[in-house]
């Protein structure tokens, strides 16, 4: 079965149950998890990428494109992650940040060409040698998105990636992100109903209850 399937995932801290969830996200679908801060959204993302701290315990299974990834280390899950801020590496140029994401191998000019094509696609042609610190918020968000996608992930997790952008930019980056990720199962975590509406998919809270926005 293609897509991301969450099979009765339960996460506890001590005896307190933080979330309980079953879901299936097909390629091209966006599942939105919504709730106020502190409700366990970030814990869910950590569980999905396999970075749960030892204070938490998790039960249940996670499947990605038919493969059980529940016990795989983060690096082998092929799940891309976008944070609240862009988290570009400050010591690398824009092109080097993208090269970091791009899968290894291939001759140097092919790699350079792919990075330049990615930049052009984002409307950032010629930005390769720039220091990420000199980019605007919207430009940085686009580079971060491209860096994730160049690693050819099989699913994408979005941790409130639009919340730091100003209003006008937010709509633009949001639609760009969903358009670029259209072949992937996407899970969006947010507290912003507008994000949830724009995502167009089902909206649930961390306990799996259906919400209407």
């Amino acid at each position: 079965m293609t897509g991301l399937r969450i099979d009765d995932l339960r996460i506890c801290r001590g005896t307190e149950e933080l979330l309980r969830l079953s879901a299936h996200v097909a390629p091209g679908e966006v599942l939105t998890i919504m709730g106020p801060s502190g409700c366990g959204k970030s814990t869910l993302l950590a569980a999905l990428i396999g970075a749960l701290t030892p204070a938490f315990s998790a039960q249940g299974r996670i499947w990605l494109n038919g493969r059980n990834i529940t016990d795989l280390p983060t690096a082998e899950r092929h799940i891309g992650l976008l944070f609240q801020d862009d988290v570009l590496f400050p010591h690398l140029s824009v092109a080097q940040n993208l090269g970091f994401g791009l899968r290894a191998g291939g001759p140097r000019n092919t790699r350079t060409a792919r990075i330049e094509a990615a930049l052009a696609r984002m409307g950032l042609a010629g930005f390769g040698p720039r220091d990420p610190a000199t980019l605007s918020g919207g430009q940085r968000a686009r580079v971060a998105l491209m860096r994730s996608l160049l690693a050819e992930p099989a699913a994408l997790l979005l941790d409130e990636p639009f919340s730091r952008l100003d209003h006008a930019l937010r709509a633009q980056i949001r639609s760009l992100t969903f358009a670029e990720a259209k072949a992937l199962p996407v899970i969006l975590v947010t507290h912003d109903p507008e994000d949830a509406r724009a995502a167009g998919g089902p909206v649930i809270d961390p306990m799996g209850r259906r919400l209407t926005v």
């Binding site: 970075a51 280390p73 983060t74 082998e76 891309g80 988290v87 970091f100 860096r147 690693a151």
Partner: peptide, 15 residues
């Protein structure tokens, strides 16, 4: 900001 840098690297498939 090491934790998030490391998280980005690992989620991109890095050891």
């Amino acid at each position: 900001d090491a934790t998030r840098h490391q998280m980005v690297a690992v989620s991109l498939g890095y050891g």
